[in-house]
Design a binder for these strands. Structure first.
Length: 256
DNA sequence: ATGGTTGCCTCGCAA
């Protein structure tokens, strides 16, 4: 069972790129972020034609998350609990077979002097509380997405240059560790300890050709899922294609 | 060198 996460930066702008990658990699479950459209505008038929069920939480212009799955999708949750006033489309969760999965688009948080940074930290605390609830079920669970968190200096091309950024600063990393320390496993890091393995390269300033990136897209596994972890990887190919997203897919393979 | 790019229904904002 291959599960991938990919921030596509507009599903409409990325449709050819995404369908090409689905045909190549044949993943069982794909968690998408930044679909940047309302749910009725999502190109559902293009993915049905490739054998995928589709569920979305859309929003005009910004944000938006989706689940693609070869097996049926059940028991949908479309909001992260903890703040009924939060209208941003950043969370979708469902059951597929014996697996609970979520597609997460965690707030960027820049600039840190704005109200965006406290929103990010509040959102992370909400995620921590909800992850604790999900972990109490003691079932296979994958919380995957664009976390907008650089976990360590090994995950950024210029640690000093990024030190004060909302993706990197001490409070952000501490909040991320509070989530992980509930008992989650970073699937990529569990099997690959190399520094400089990135999932995002800024469009600006030639970051991709110079391989100056960030690892900010993560798959966090419950113990019952981590026990089945057999492989992981980052597919760099889509980042080098025409009309690329600034993110590229990260995936893991679970046995059974 | 205070740059640079992409996507959106915008005439700036978010990333």
């Amino acid at each position: 069972m291959k599960i991938a996460t990919w921030n596509v930066n507009s599903i409409k702008a990325r449709l050819a790129n995404v369908t090409h990658w689905l045909e190549q990699g044949r993943p069982d479950i794909v968690l998408l972020q930044e679909i940047k459209c309302q749910s009725p505008d999502f190109p559902v038929l293009d993915f049905k034609a490739l054998g995928y069920h589709v569920e979305t939480v859309g929003q005009k212009t910004y944000n938006g998350v989706a689940i693609l799955s070869r097996a049926p999708i059940a028991d949908l949750v479309t909001r992260l609990p903890g703040d009924e006033t939060d209208e941003q489309a950043r969370y979708i969760e469902a059951t597929i077979g014996n697996l609970r999965v979520a597609s997460i688009y965690l707030p960027n948080g820049n600039p840190v002097e704005s109200d965006k940074y406290p929103y990010k930290l509040r959102w992370m605390e909400r995620l921590r509380r909800h992850a604790a609830t999900l972990l109490a079920r003691e079932r296979p669970l994958v919380l995957a997405g664009d976390y907008n968190v650089i976990p360590t200096d090994a995950d950024v091309y210029d640690p000093e240059g990024w030190r004060a950024d909302a993706l990197c600063r001490t409070e952000t990393r501490a909040a991320f560790r509070r989530i992980v320390h509930l008992g989650l496993t970073d699937a990529f890091r569990a099997l690959d300890d190399r520094a400089g393995q990135y999932s995002f390269w800024d469009y600006q300033a030639g970051r991709w050709p110079r391989d100056e990136g960030l690892r900010i897209d993560h798959l966090l596994l419950s113990p019952q899922a981590a026990d089945r972890l057999v492989a992981t990887g980052i597919d760099r190919d889509p980042r080098g294609r025409e009309k690329a997203s600034d993110h590229t897919p990260v995936w893991c393979e679970l046995s059974g």
